[in-house]
Design a protein around this nucleic acid. Structure first.
Lengths: 227, 227
DNA sequence: GATAGTTCTTAGTATAATCTAACTCTGGCA
DNA sequence: TGCCAGAGTTAGATTATACTAAGAACTATC
């Protein structure tokens, strides 16, 4: 099934696969310009890399349409995402990193650590299933939990929700969420939403009330609360 | 004193500086072919890199003689050595790495970790002064302890010694030393040495006797034992 | 102190990744 | 339904690092 000698991927290739995974995870194609924006490179650099990646069989490229991961590319991308999320969890729990700073450090390390070290870290942590932001950690075998989540910006007024995942990496937003007590695991009820893309109001279990603007509410991904 | 924008060094440059430090630490010049051998690259690659490094002011190059670090190069090299040794210590103490496997992992990580993470690790460990092999860890400020050590192969018969540092990175040798109880900190007495580069015999505090061949004895660096 | 051998350097090539400039699709709108 | 703006691609240059092949400079020996 596996190629006997899977050539080790370069850092750049690993980064491309990761962003292609994120951009195409909702089923579609990842566009050249979106990949370029996410990696902060010029579009022609993406075209060049895309050519090589499709020659190596990691992605499929439909010219002028976009790219998708092959099975092999998806496996490699999920391996990187596992590394990243294990690292974030380890740095947070064992080395006192906060919610905000951890992403950048994990980004630096994810290309360098060995699989062995990742599994040691995972073991130390008791094989965590979610990272500090609530995102699911793929297994070493390459499986990832896929749960249908609703963003707080879309949830109907009256809904009882569990906040599952905070979908941003921006340290400023993250520390704002932390201050507000909006962290994965909490329960909340949508009590109001202003029209015209206005803010959503929620009541926490503690009966505290939070008013969340649309942009931030979109980053808060929730599940219908279990009774 | 410092350049305002010290350009970040590439991985390769960091590796070159590290081996040049090791090769020239006994005061002399590092030879092109020795650098090439340590980095497992061809000699012309070294000549090329040496040219660039001396243009950037990290080393001084005397053609056909060799290279030495400048103050700036030495600072950068010691920073890498600190990272490496902190990583080895952390991986050993916190993640269950053994004496043998730790070097390779530290080598991968030393280029990727941030200074902040290194200092967090150092803090967690209580600012260790020696790595698991007994080598001194440079301070964050760039100072390194320099102790005159004698290799076991040179120590006179009758000497009372403290084993301070095990100077090899080869996992097989390291695990052999570990089996023999020849680890930093132990005391021993040289009881015999065979002529013609023959083995050295030592008696440990436990009264156990070890016979160490010349090659291995050279890697065991000792201090005259304090009473 | 000439020469043989080793060591070092120069020259020229290759690969991965990037860029800018210029050209070519594609799809929406007048 | 044809055109044009924006998105995508190709072309060509640049940088870092490596390689092989070939020439230059020390050094050790006779």
């Amino acid at each position: 099934m596996h190629a006997l000698h899977e050539a080790p991927l370069t850092r750049s290739v690993e980064d491309y696969l990761k962003v292609i995974y994120h951009l195409s995870s909702q089923g579609g194609f990842a566009a050249t310009s979106d990949i370029a924006a996410m990696l902060d490179v010029a579009p022609p650099s993406v075209s060049g890399m895309v050519k090589r990646l499709s020659e190596t069989g990691l992605i499929e490229h439909v010219p002028y349409r976009g790219v998708q991961l092959t099975q092999q590319g998806r496996r490699a991308a999920l391996r990187m995402i596992r590394r990243h999320r294990i690292l974030e969890t380890y740095l947070t729990q064992q080395l006192g990193y906060d919610w905000g700073g951890v992403h950048v450090e994990a980004e630096r390390l994810e290309h360098a650590v060995s699989d062995g070290l990742i599994e040691r870290m995972a073991g130390t942590l008791g094989d965590p299933r979610y990272d500090p932001h609530g995102a699911p950690i793929p297994t070493a075998a390459g499986d990832i939990e896929e749960t249908e989540l609703v963003s707080l910006a879309e949830a109907p007024v009256g809904a009882e929700l569990e906040l599952r995942e905070v979908g941003t990496q921006d340290p400023a937003r993250l520390s704002f969420f932390a201050e507000q007590g909006l962290v994965p695991g909490i329960r909340l009820r949508v009590t109001d939403r202003q029209p015209f893309n206005g803010p959503t109001t929620v009541r926490l279990e503690s009966d505290e009330v939070r008013v969340v603007g649309r942009e931030l509410a979109q980053a808060l991904r929730c599940l219908a609360a279990t009774k």
